[in-house]
Nucleic acid binder design. Structure first.
Length: 423
RNA sequence: GGAGGAAUGGCAGAGUGGUCGAAUGCGGCAGUCUUGAAAACUGUUGAGGGUCACACCUCCGGGGGUUCGAAUCCCUCUUCCUCCGCCA
């Protein structure tokens, strides 16, 4: 969430910037600022009451020690009164603070100045593209048909044991998945990211830390008996490693990578665009996460983009990069680049990576700080990106690498697979 | 799952009702000394709120209670350790 102090000082500029999200934030921000003033006034009143009570307690102690028990007992009455007002004020303060938090949670991140205006994904700005769109063989198939033909992914079997959106990967299909995971992790660690294995279930504090809660509560699988959530992305556990931490300036850059399955309820999704691997409830992803000094976070973002580019280039998949417009930008992000691979058989672009800078938005919730040069604690910047999400990469490979008789394996993956074609 | 014990500042570790945001040691930072470094010595060193700055307030695993007053007493939750059981 945004910092109150920044909100107070730059109200007008923030309202204007949030306009890019097609959001009129004025009433919200004004309500927040009013409530914050009320909060501080109440806090001051409470503090003064407590200061008075503390003073009296000390006096009572001294009086008892001096043997003046009756004087001490007289003061107790006064103390009781203060206690009463203190209690009332404390309750009021809690109420106000909770209300204030609720409002603050409703304010999305401020879009970066480079974020274009726009309403939907139609308005995203293409900033780069690379790779030739291959000419496919006659009777080219979409990946779900290929998967069936070569018996490498079984969607029906997944329906039987769990439900729609939980595919079963078989034989070479499973091996190709594992190859991709290893290949991505190797690329990421070679680029300086430390590999981590993290829990796949998180508590609600972690959900709040990275901003999935309370905003996207319905998107996560919730294990109610234990009050845990299945992670929708490795971003949640990995970024939360730094919750309530104060890192040292010299710890930067902090670069982690992790493979995890991701679980998403995807409530409300349906139709042709969710066929096959296009949209799943469980999928695999290798994530990269960075914690950076505010002065260098955009440099880091560019480095992450360059890194993902490099991986897609090696896989020889045609892709483009989009800068998300205000209307499509995620709630917690300041700037996001989406990577899309062209799925030739479906004749459409598939999102395979999303690389974002959250600036201090997550850090503020996480209380992730670092000691700056002056020994002061400052919020760090957090970033993350997919490097990469598996299913759509797999879809892209199956479709773009199909031949008359089978599917060729991209050269870089052959050593990981142990075979060079399927079929 | 059963029985005990524990949770204090970056770390170790004292503190069992007031003078405790908290001894001491280590670590960190600054300085003295030194050609430089080490050692030694001196000072400094938790977080948040609040203020122009002070004052002041809150925090000793989380929550609740007793008391004029709680790190210290009581209840509860969580986590960790030891022993027993079970187990990939």
């Amino acid at each position: 969430m945004l910092q109150l102090q920044v909100l107070r000082e730059q109200k007008e500029a923030i309202i204007k910037a949030l306009g890019k999200r097609n959001l009129d934030a004025k009433p919200l921000l004004e309500a927040i600022i009013d409530l914050d003033e009320k909060r501080r006034a109440t806090q001051t009143e409470l503090d003064n009451t407590l200061a008075e009570a503390n003073k009296i307690s000390k006096e009572i102690g001294n009086l008892f020690k001096a043997g003046k028990a009756s004087d001490a007992n007289a003061l107790k009455t006064k103390s009781a009164g203060l206690k009463e007002t203190g209690k009332t004020l404390g309750e009021a303060l809690n109420r106000i603070a909770a209300e204030l938090d609720e409002l603050l949670y409703q304010v999305p991140n401020i879009p970066h100045e480079s974020v274009p205006k726009g309403n939907s994904d139609e308005d995203n700005e293409e900033i780069y593209s690379e790779g030739e769109i291959p000419k496919l063989v006659e009777n080219a198939m979409p990946h779900w048909e290929l998967a069936k033909r070569f018996d490498i992914i079984d969607f029906e079997l997944g329906v039987k044991i769990t439900g729609a959106g939980f595919p079963v990967y078989k034989g070479k299909g499973a091996r190709l998945q594992r190859a991709l995971i290893s290949y991505f992790l190797d690329k990421n660690t070679a680029a300086g990211y430390t590999e981590m294995q993290v829990p796949h279930l998180v508590n609600d504090a972690s959900g709040y830390g990275t901003g999935q809660l309370p905003d996207k509560e319905g998107q996560m699988y919730h294990v109610q008996a234990d009050e845990l959530y299945l992670i929708p992305t490795a971003e949640v556990p990995v970024t939360n490693l730094f919750r309530d931490e104060i890192v040292k300036n010299e710890d930067f850059p902090i670069k982690y990578t992790a493979y995890t399955p991701c679980f998403r309820r995807e409530a409300g999704s349906y139709g042709a665009h969710v066929r096959g691997l296009n949209r799943l409830h469980q999928f695999d992803k290798v994530e990269i996460v960075r914690v950076e000094h505010p002065d260098r976070s955009y440099e880091a973002l560019e480095a992450m983009v360059a890194h993902v580019k490099e991986v897609l280039r090696e896989l020889k998949l045609p892709f483009r990069i989009l800068r998300l417009c205000g209307g499509d930008l995620g709630f917690t992000a300041a700037l996001t680049y989406d990577f899309e691979v062209f799925s030739t058989a479906q004749n459409r672009w598939l999102e395979v990576s999303s690389v974002s800078n959250f600036e201090t938005y997550q850090a503020n919730r996480l209380k992730l700080r670092f000691k700056d040069g002056n020994g002061k604690n400052q919020l760090a910047h957090t970033l993350n990106g997919s490097a990469l999400a598996l299913p759509r990469i797999l879809a892209g490979i199956l479709e773009n690498y199909q031949t008359k008789n089978g599917i060729q394996i991209p050269e870089v993956l052959v050593p990981y697979c142990g075979f060079d074609s399927i079929g």
